[in-house]
């Protein structure tokens, strides 16, 4: 049996990873999801509720939950915490006015018991805008260095152009895989 056959067979077995995508409203969560899935992003309306997508990527079955970020929806985020492998926190890097808000919401998630084991990927989105903060500036504003409870990474990206989305998703999958699929 060659390597390819083995890989194919492995693919057939479910390698399911559940990602929960959260962030303030207007961060670009749905745009990231649709762009990653190769869909049209021109028609996206603000999310009333949530979107679920199941994607195949590198042999993994990704269940991505994209939940609306409006203030009135944030109290429902907790309903989606169960069995989350990875948390994708999306930041509008040009929204300088709400970074304090953004930081507070993120840190309140990290103390949630049901997200305790989850890997954290922070997308510093909208890097295509000239006024966007760099991922370094966002790292400081959100005080990411204080996070000791989760594996985390900040990745600058642009959902509109698609830049660096893949890098971020690959990292979070690798981190989850090394945790789940090698631990006994």
């Amino acid at each position: 049996m060659g390597l390819l056959t083995i890989l194919k067979k492995m693919k057939q077995k479910e390698k399911e990873v559940r990602l929960l995508m959260l962030g303030l409203d207007n961060a670009g969560k749905t745009t990231i999801l649709k762009k990653f899935n190769g869909e049209d992003i021109d028609m996206i309306s603000p999310t009333l509720g949530f979107n679920i997508k199941t994607l195949e990527h590198r042999g993994f079955k990704l269940n991505v939950w994209d939940v609306g970020g409006q203030k009135s929806l944030r109290s429902y985020w907790r309903n989606y915490f169960e069995s989350t492998d990875g948390l994708v926190w999306v930041v509008d890097s040009a929204d300088r006015m709400r970074l304090a808000d953004c930081k507070r919401e993120l840190h309140s998630l990290l103390v949630e018991e049901r997200l305790a084991g989850a890997t954290l990927l922070v997308f510093a989105n909208k890097q295509d805008l000239p006024g966007a903060l760099t991922s370094e500036e966002i790292r400081q504003s959100l005080d990411l260095d204080s996070i000791k409870t989760h594996h985390w990474l900040i990745q600058d990206c642009s959902a509109v152009t698609g830049d660096h989305l893949l890098e971020g998703i690959d990292w979070i999958i690798d981190d989850i895989a090394s945790r789940i699929f090698t631990m006994d």
């Binding site: 203030k71 040009a94 300088r96 006015m97 709400r98 970074l99 304090a100 808000d101 507070r104 000239p130 006024g131 903060l133 504003s141």
Partner: peptide
């Protein structure tokens, strides 16, 4: 204070150039 925060600007961060 945290409730009010949503309606405040994060003073620590400069606004964009434009």
């Amino acid at each position: 204070k945290t409730n009010d925060h949503t309606d405040e600007i994060d003073a620590a961060v400069e606004l964009a150039a434009c």
